[in-house]
Design a protein around this nucleic acid. Structure first.
Length: 842
RNA sequence: GCCGACGUGGUGGAAUGGUAGACACGACAGACUUAAAAUCUGUUGGGCCUUAUAGCCCGUGCCGGUUCGAGUCCGGCCGUCGGUACCA
């Protein structure tokens, strides 16, 4: 072969890697340090891989290949999060069993991933739909149950209350929050998790109900404003609503509650910001002022947070203020600093408490923080309340009315749930012909009588199976443990292996899983830690989110109904415009905007999320076919920083493809198809060594820092130089191949073989660099006068630290002289090896 | 609204507080070619001036500050993207 031909060399090496199990992880050698690098679990969809997948996968593959060369025992697995709705819906439509669809999709994904040359250990593939896998998902559910963390609750499904399984994740809220400190994740993700958990400190306070022997308990984060509570609100679902409602208000309250019950979550939040409510006719007593205040029912108070009831302080809470103004309820200022007749004053940093004293206690003149402490202490002493912590986090609804999911390992005997014994696992899905929803809102499994009706294996008593299945999250909550020990039969994972391999050292995936998947997996991991299955508190030590890849840049001009162009920055909302796609040569840049060439008509220039409807989806198969897997890998890394959102560009792919062709020609004589005669046992000269060691240093540091784009640019710089060398020292050229290998492993293997090497490239040692080769005889120093660059001077490297020498040379420079002649030199800044700055007074 | 990220050439992007624009795309000019493709060489932030590949000015969203020196640090705006939202 003479020209670079990825279509020939890539399949060759992929076959070689797989058939010889080159990347099978050695799980007996415990002397090496381990490195566990993990990709987020893919769902094998029918549409196959898109270009977003190989972005993260290439990054982890580079790390895996690099770490192997650095002497680590690397665990780099892949598998399938294969339960899920699309396969079930496809089954309903076509009658094809989800198992078959799933198998086909996995096959396709596997082939696509292998065509990209990822160095996975294919013997560790896991599949969540495999009974041998979900047996242990069910087993973990049993542990949750035994810990009292799985319970049944009545939840409305399609407006009907049904018994559903819930997981008590709230019991772990504090630990999920605290242990974020221990992991090396992006701040933004940690912050999102913190917000989701939503911890807030405040007080529970009891309000006595007038005329009844009841109290209303509220949660507030602002006990300091208690003196300003002029009414209370119960959520429509609150049990005390009936007690408080007076006869004459009854019909209004009943109507309001019915209305609220019919509103969806959306109606109650997004669409309807306008507060509504109704007075119950009942009153409660403000424990501080002793005054009676009215109790309302309003759906801006949610039953699911806090106690489902609030004390309303319209002076210092925006929602209460809005409500009070609408219903003409008094507003009292108890924190000084704003104007409560105009808006709620919610500042708690600068405000000073006022109007807040009774016979026993005064918090007047205190800053908010101190007032909170003092009033809470008083309430506690009087038995009227206590300091509490609340979380936004809710328990996890764990039941789905689906066929294609893990069955619960639970039977009902005489209507009572009974967990199954470990030896009776797995509970497998029945083979059926029909997957249609039951029509009753229940799971399709409910219609399969021969499966539902069973006997208690322990007693032989008649029993019914749980017909809901687990959500898709279940399988992905612990898959990273199964990779460690995929064939283990005594538990999800053996402790010895878990202790060696965990935690995951690097976890790469999309930010869309920032909250739920990561929170759920952390929760399960902590439960497994508590029951002794794992030895680590947190599963994922380091997390990196790859940025989304957008479609190619698009230029869009807008036309009105009459067909006239309208500038993109002058579009009026509510009017329909016709988009017109323009090509690159129809547009030009004007100031900060793009305009139609030759006009001043501003157009939109941006990239969009890839989507079928927009028609801007890039299929990786097509890229591999045209340019090869190495080009795809290289381009996805060269586009920009891994974490960043970035637009696709086919021209960019061509760019890296040309680079690989140049690398090929650096090594191969295209006339003969053999390694160039110029590559031989020559001694490298000083310049060659310098750029070689610079390249080793840069590539090494950039891989460690996940700056793959700049690592690749250094590989380009080296090749651009090496192409010019008449004689190319073979040692250097082989070192270069080893640096290139993690990024473009197919071409690297091929050239390695052509260079006559017999060793397995994947396990050759990563090159080290030596400082001494990074130096050259001379260096260029920038000379500034008053911070402006005026000259560059060349100095011998060994004089780099000699301030007097360098400064003398700098002042001697004719350019510099123009600026320092006849003025006073005030100061001279000298940064060795970099810069000189002469400060003068003019 | 709140939380978080980010604003650098025509484009993607690069720059431990120290010569802004590495590397790549595109464009332009040239070489090779009957021609095209491929490949190679050169130029390429804007402007001024010039015989000059000399020199000067401006330039990292906007305004201000710290510093000998700011794309980088600090304060305040503006804009884009992502998350989240009646959470008391």
């Amino acid at each position: 072969m003479s020209e670079y031909n990825p279509a020939a060399i890539e399949p060759k090496w992929q076959k070689y890697w797989i058939e010889n199990k080159i990347f099978k992880t050695d799980d007996t050698d415990r002397s090496k340090p381990k490195y566990y690098v993990l990709d987020m679990f893919p769902y094998p969809s029918s549409s196959g891989l898109h270009v977003g997948h190989p972005e993260g996968y290439t990054a982890t593959d580079i790390i895996a290949r690099y770490k192997r060369k650095k002497g680590f025992n690397v665990l780099h697995p892949i598998g399938w999060d294969a339960f899920g709705l699309p396969a079930e819906q496809y089954a309903i439509k076509t009658g094809t069993h989800p198992k078959i669809t799933t198998k086909e999709n996995i096959q396709r994904f596997r082939e696509q991933l292998q065509s990209l040359g990822f160095s996975y250990d294919w013997d560790r593939e896991v599949d969540t739909t495999d009974p041998a896998y979900y047996k242990w998902t069910q087993w973990i559910f049993l542990q949750l149950y035994k810990q009292g963390l799985a319970y049944q609750s009545s939840v409305a499904v399609n407006r009907k209350p049904m018994r559903q399984w819930m997981l008590r994740i709230t019991a772990y809220a504090e630990r999920l929050l605290e242990d974020l400190e221990e992991v090396d994740w992006p701040d933004s993700i940690k912050e999102m998790q913190r917000n989701w958990i939503g911890r807030s400190i405040g007080a529970d306070i009891d309000f006595r109900v007038s005329g009844h022997d009841e109290t209303i308990r509220v949660f507030t984060t602002r006990p300091d404003t208690l003196f300003g509570a002029t009414y209370m609100v119960l959520s429509p679902e609150h049990p005390l609503v009936d007690v408080l409602t007076t006869a004459e208000k009854k019909s209004a309250v009943v109507a309001y509650r019915a209305e609220a019950a019919n509103k969806s979550e959306l109606d109650r939040t997004d669409l309807n910001k306008d507060k509504s409510g109704v007075f119950t006719g009942g009153h409660a007593v403000n424990p501080c002022t002793g005054k009676e205040i009215p109790v309302w029912v309003a759906d801006y108070v949610l039953m699911s947070y806090g106690t489902g009831a609030i004390m309303a302080v319209p002076g210092h809470d925006e929602r209460d203020w809005e409500f009070a103004v609408k219903y003409d309820i008094p507003i009292i200022e108890v924190v000084k600093g704003g104007d409560v007749s105009k808006a709620a004053y919610t500042d708690s940093d600068d405000g000073i408490v006022v109007n807040s004293a009774n016979d026993e206690v005064s918090i007047n003149d205190l800053p908010v923080a101190e007032a909170k402490v003092k009033i809470t202490a008083w309430l506690e002493k009087k038995g009227l309340g206590e300091k509490t912590v609340n979380y936004k986090l809710r328990d996890w609804l764990f039941s789905r009315q689906r066929y294609w999911g893990e069955p619960f390992p639970v039977i009902f005997v005489n209507g009572e749930p009974k967990p199954m014994r470990e030896e009776d696992l797995p509970v497998t899905l029945p083979e059926v012909e029909r997957y249609k929803p039951s029509g009753t809102g229940e799971s399709p499994l409910a219609t399969i009588e021969e499966w539902v009706n069973t006997t208690d294996p322990e007693t032989g008593a008649p029993a019914r199976r749980e017909t809901n299945t687990m959500p898709q999250w279940a399988g992905s909550c612990w898959y990273y443990l199964r990779y460690i020990d995929p064939d283990y039969t005594e538990g999800p994972v053996s402790l010895e292996k878990e202790q060696y391999w965990m935690p995951v050292d690097l976890y790469v995936g999309g930010a869309e899983h920032a909250v739920l998947h990561l929170l759920y997996a952390r929760f399960w991991h902590k439960v497994l830690y508590d029951v002794g299955v794992v030895s680590t508190k947190e599963p994922f030590q380091r997390l990196v989110n790859q940025g989304m890849i957008l479609g190619e840049l698009e230029f869009t001009a807008w036309k009105d109904a009459a067909g006239n162009y309208v500038p993109a920055n002058a579009l009026e909302p509510g009017i329909d415009y016709l988009p017109e796609k323009l090509s690159e040569d129809q547009v030009e840049k004007k100031g900060t905007d793009f305009v139609i060439a030759g006009t001043g008509i501003v157009i939109d220039a941006r990239s969009f999320k890839m989507s079928k409807s927009r028609g801007n989806v890039i299929n990786p198969d097509v890229v591999v076919e045209q340019y090869g897997a190495d080009s795809l890998r290289l381009y996805e890394m060269f586009m920009g920083p891994l974490e960043q959102v970035k637009p696709w560009s086919m021209k960019g792919v061509e760019g890296v493809y040309r680079f690989l062709k140049r690398v090929w020609r650096t090594f191969v004589d295209e006339e003969t198809g053999k390694i160039r005669s110029g590559i031989g046992d020559a001694e490298p000269d000083r310049d060659q060594l310098k750029i070689m060691h610079e390249t080793i240093k840069k590539v090494t540091e950039d891989i460690e820092g996940h700056r793959f784009n700049t690592a690749i640019s250094q590989l380009m710089i080296f090749n651009n130089e090496a192409m010019k060398w008449e004689v190319k020292p073979a040692g250097l050229m082989k070192t270069y191949i080893r640096l290139l290998d993690p990024f473009a492993p197919h071409i690297a293997e091929e050239l390695w073989e052509m260079l006559g090497e017999k060793s397995v490239l994947a396990f050759t040692e990563w090159p080290g660099y030596e400082e001494k080769y990074l130096q050259s005889d001379s260096m260029v120093i920038a000379v500034q006068v008053n911070g402006k660059l005026r000259a560059s001077i060349e100095i011998p490297s060994d004089k780099a630290g000699d301030k007097a020498f360098v400064l003398a040379l700098a002042r001697d420079n004719s350019q510099v002289q123009k600026y320092i002649e006849g003025v006073t030199v005030v100061k001279e800044i000298f940064v060795p090896g970099r810069i000189v700055n002469i400060v003068v007074r003019v």
